[in-house]
């Protein structure tokens, strides 16, 4: 290569040739296919992440914006200083409150994800097994809720779950209970809200995994002596694993950081990291601390999930 360029210096035509080869060698279609998502990730994920990370290393200040600069330039002495404040991160571990909030968020998200999976699986299964015409209808029914505002739907649940709401009125009129149940402003309502809101995100990947499944595999399993329940757990579920993982990731991650649902449906004692973030940002006006909370959340959540996905991808390529 270096010899080639050397000769290109001497010979003008050679350099043109080398240039031509270069452009031929680079597959621009391929480059653009990869560069668009990379650029997207860089602009909308990586750069904001760095900005938040930067803020998390600064200190609060009564100023606009309300935090100190990391770099300080003293023109008189021509002295550039970099000040990194790790105190925010240390503080996260000093006060057990933050760890409690992370754990509680993870618990709520995990429980919700589990129930979402439990409800989504039969739906996705039914969709994948139904006739193509019915399938289109069911698919649109699953997506239909997205046509109304998310807030409106959560408010609708408030109407269902409140003390004199539909659920209580129904249960009372049928005589199942004689005192209204307190459902709103409880963790139960938060679970319902999250499960309901994120259900489509679980159904769709599951459906796409189940739809690809060859039905004769189940017949083969039955033929080999497996009862339907056994073949479901030994064949259907393992084959749906990519869908299950994708669905769980899609539900779990946003559920951990969920803010709106716990504030509308949850009780005041529903402790979630989204709420802590809000308090840091708006009540304490501590942008650096809020940023540190966000960064730790990202690391706690995204890293293990990326590792899982990575190892899964490797297994598939083997």
């Amino acid at each position: 290569m270096s010899i080639q360029t050397g000769s290109a210096w001497v010979d003008g035509s050679g350099s043109r040739l080398a240039k031509y080869n270069f452009f031929k060698r680079v597959n621009w279609g391929r480059v653009s296919v990869f560069s668009v998502p990379t650029l997207w990730l860089a602009i909308f994920f990586f750069i904001p992440f760095l900005v938040v990370f930067k803020i998390s290393l600064s200190e609060t200040a009564i100023a606009v914006p309300p935090y100190t600069a990391l770099l300080d330039w003293n023109a008189e002495d021509a002295y550039l200083s970099l000040k990194l404040n790790l105190g925010n991160y240390l503080f996260l571990f000093e006060d057990s409150f933050y760890i409690d909030a992370y754990l509680s968020s993870i618990k709520i998200a995990a429980v919700s994800t589990f129930f979402t999976l439990l409800i989504a699986f039969p739906i996705a299964y039914l969709m994948a097994r139904s006739k193509p015409s019915t399938r289109a209808l069911l698919l649109s029914l699953v997506i239909l809720p997205f046509w109304t505002s998310f807030l409106l739907r959560v408010y609708a649940w408030m109407g269902f779950l409140k003390k004199n709401g539909l659920v209580n009125e129904f249960l009372m009129s049928t005589g199942i209970i004689d005192q209204p149940l307190i459902m709103l402003q409880t963790d139960f309502a938060v679970y319902i809200g999250i499960v309901y809101t994120y259900l489509p995100f679980m159904v769709l990947p599951l459906y796409s995994a189940l739809e690809k499944m060859d039905m004769t595999l189940l017949e083969a399993a039955e033929d080999l002596g497996a009862r339907p329940a056994t073949s479901f757990f030994l064949i259907t579920v393992p084959l749906a694993v990519p869908g299950i993982i994708a669905g769980c990731v899609l539900v779990f991650i946003p559920a951990v950081g969920e803010f709106v649902i716990p504030s509308l449906l949850g009780g005041s004692d529903t402790l979630m990291i989204g709420r802590v973030l809000w308090d840091e940002f708006f009540l304490n006006r501590d942008w650096p601390m809020a940023s540190a909370v966000a960064i730790v959340m990202l690391i706690v959540l995204v890293l293990p999930i990326m590792l899982i996905r990575n190892s899964q991808g490797k297994e598939e390529t083997v």
Partner: peptide, 16 residues
């Protein structure tokens, strides 16, 4: 600002 933090912390403690 320091007191705000204490206040918020106490408040979350009360609520939860």
């Amino acid at each position: 600002a320091k007191f705000d933090r204490l206040l918020t912390r106490a408040w979350t403690g009360i609520k939860t």
